[in-house]
Amino acid sequence: MGRARRNSDCTAGGSRPVVRSHRPRRVEGAEQAFVIGVLTNAADFARARAWGISDAPDHERYLADTADLLAEALERFDTVRARTFHPQDFEEFCLLNGLDPAEPAARDRYLVNPALQTQLLAYQGEELAGDFVPRLVRARENGLTLCHADLLLDGGLYGGAGASDEEHAAWVRAAYERGGEVFRRMLVGAGAGVYELRLRVDAPGGGLTAAARVLQWEDGVVRINDEDLELVCAVLCTGLALELPGVAVLHGSQGSAASCGEYLPASWAWSSGGQEWAPADRPVRLDGVAAQPGYSLGTVC
């Protein structure tokens, strides 16, 4: 379940945050990606107006303009991606690189900064103000965690300094696969249902946390957002690779329509001393969710 190094494809001319007069243009003869930053709340929109990012009168109109721009980009570009345009992150980026935040080039550089590629989400026509904006917010938070994990692993997750060392890369890849297998066994043991996984691994520089919502059908098919799966596996990988202690809680409703629509509340807890995950030795409360010790992952095929 190892991940290949992620390559940046943020090459389209449409990488500037939304300005209503801006329209995406496709360069013929080459695969092009359209990348956009989205101000996800009214406070960020108000803070960014001084930089001339949008001429919309308010955040609601801004989101409507952004939705129109994304719809047009889907028709013209091979790939459309979005990420949160976070004013504080942007100001810090400009300060670090000696850029003027009012210059469009500064915004373009911020959006395609390789260190922030983990925050990008593919856009496929979802309702912007519905589930997609909350996903953008979570993707930023997830991306910060992924950067922390990658730093702890000396670049082993996303091709940093440690990636040139084949032995190091193999070590990280093996830990990633072990982490993915731990998560798979948690879900297989839970069976059909609607769940949320909460995960915390104690790490230098602050704990690594992850959360993922999971829908699992009777036939074992699982629905989970790609970015949430990536985060869970990365946090598990880091904990196993560096032998860091952690705790995980899987909770929700167990059951399915095939069982006459009967759903039962369920919650399980596991802990790790660093080398492997096992049922917690006592009841656990994580992020306000209480759980009893879970089933043995070693008995799950």
Rank of each mutant, 00 (worst) to 15 (best):
V35G: 00
H59I: 03
Q216L: 13
V214L: 12
A174I: 11
W268A: 11
L69V: 13
G52C: 09
G189I: 07
A258T: 14
A64V: 15
N41R: 10
A48M: 10
V222A: 06
A234P: 01
G98I: 11
V232Q: 06
A71L: 07
S21L: 11
D287P: 08
S259L: 13
L153M: 05
W277K: 12
E181A: 04
W270G: 00
P101I: 04
A105M: 08
G220C: 05
Q88W: 14
I53G: 06
E91T: 06
A115W: 08
T84I: 13
R173E: 14
G2N: 10
P114G: 07
V112C: 02
L99H: 01
Q88A: 15
A290D: 02
R3P: 04
T66P: 08
A42W: 02
P114I: 02
R173H: 15
R20T: 13
F93C: 04
V214K: 08
R138H: 12
E177A: 04
A175H: 09
E243I: 01
G191W: 09
L157C: 00
R76I: 05
A163H: 03
A48D: 05
Q88L: 15
L128T: 02
A50D: 00
H251D: 14
A278V: 15
S253R: 12
Y158H: 03
Q88D: 15
E262Q: 08
A33Q: 06
A46Y: 02
S8Q: 11
F85V: 13
A43D: 14
A161C: 00
V133R: 04
R61Y: 11
L74D: 06
G239M: 13
L231T: 02
L250E: 09
A115L: 11
G52D: 05
A210T: 12
L264N: 05
G274C: 03
A290S: 08
V19Q: 12
V194D: 09
A42N: 04
L264D: 04
L240Q: 08
R282A: 15
G206T: 13
M186H: 04
C94E: 02
G37C: 05
I36M: 13
S54N: 15
E276R: 14
G160L: 01
E218K: 10
A257I: 11
G252F: 06
V214H: 13
Q32P: 00
R25D: 09
R178I: 00
V201L: 07
D9F: 08
S253L: 15
R138S: 09
P293N: 11
R184P: 00
